[in-house]
Amino acid sequence: MSQANFDEAAQRELSKFLESEQAKARLQQSIHTFCDLAFDKCVTKIGNKLDRSEEACLANTVDRFLDTSLFIVRRLEETKGSM
């Protein structure tokens, strides 16, 4: 069934759904990329467990990621609220 067979409201709903799913996929890809970068930066030797400096590096990196994510969400909410 092609999109042309839907009425205008259904096409808008489908379009919104597809945009939402694409945004989720982009977010997942960003998180995956972030995890790869953090691991490459912080983990200097492969072993059975992380040493203290590796653990601290990963914890700090995750904290900064969360801080940044919250900042972005708040800014988007402020922008959306002022529209």
Rank of each mutant, 00 (worst) to 15 (best):
A4R: 10
S30N: 13
D36A: 10
S20C: 05
L37S: 10
Q22R: 15
L27G: 13
Q22C: 08
A4H: 08
S69N: 14
E54R: 00
E54S: 05
T33S: 12
L14R: 07
K16W: 12
A56F: 05
D40G: 05
E13H: 11
A38K: 00
E54W: 00
E55T: 09
A10Q: 14
A9C: 02
E8P: 04
L37R: 15
G81D: 14
R64M: 08
T33G: 03
S82C: 03
S20P: 03
T68H: 08
K41M: 06
D67C: 02
K16T: 13
L27N: 14
R64K: 14
R12V: 03
A23P: 00
I46N: 09
S15A: 09
L14Q: 03
D36M: 05
T68P: 02
L27M: 06
L18P: 01
L70Q: 14
M1F: 10
F34I: 04
A25P: 05
M83L: 15
T79W: 10
D40Y: 04
D63Q: 06
E55Q: 14
F6I: 04
N60A: 07
C42Q: 01
K24I: 00
G81Q: 15
A25V: 10
L50T: 00
K49F: 09
A4K: 10
G81C: 03
V62W: 03
S15E: 14
D51M: 01
I72G: 01
S53M: 05
R75F: 07
H32A: 15
D7Q: 03
R75V: 09
K80E: 15
Q29I: 02
S53H: 07
S53R: 12
E78F: 01
F17E: 15
E19D: 07
L37I: 07
N48G: 12
T44G: 12
L18M: 13
M83A: 13
S53P: 01
K24C: 00
E55L: 11
T33I: 00
K80D: 14
V62R: 01
L14P: 03
D67T: 06
S69V: 09
F34E: 05
T61P: 00
S2C: 02
F71I: 09
L58H: 06
I31E: 14
D63H: 09
T68I: 01
C35H: 11
S20A: 12
R12D: 04
E8S: 05
K80G: 00
D36Q: 13
E8F: 05
K41N: 10
A23W: 04
K24T: 02
L76N: 08
E21T: 04
Q11A: 06
Q3H: 10
M1I: 10
E8Q: 14
A56D: 12
S53V: 12
A9W: 11
A4I: 07
Q11M: 02
E13Y: 08
F39Q: 13
Q11I: 06
Q3S: 15
L14N: 04
K16P: 07
L37E: 13
S69I: 05
T79K: 10
S69L: 11
S15F: 09
C57G: 00
L66H: 07
D36R: 08
F65P: 03
S69P: 05
N60V: 02
S20F: 09
R52T: 12
D7I: 00
A25D: 08
Q28A: 11
D7H: 03
L70A: 06
S82R: 11
T68N: 07
R64G: 03
E55I: 07
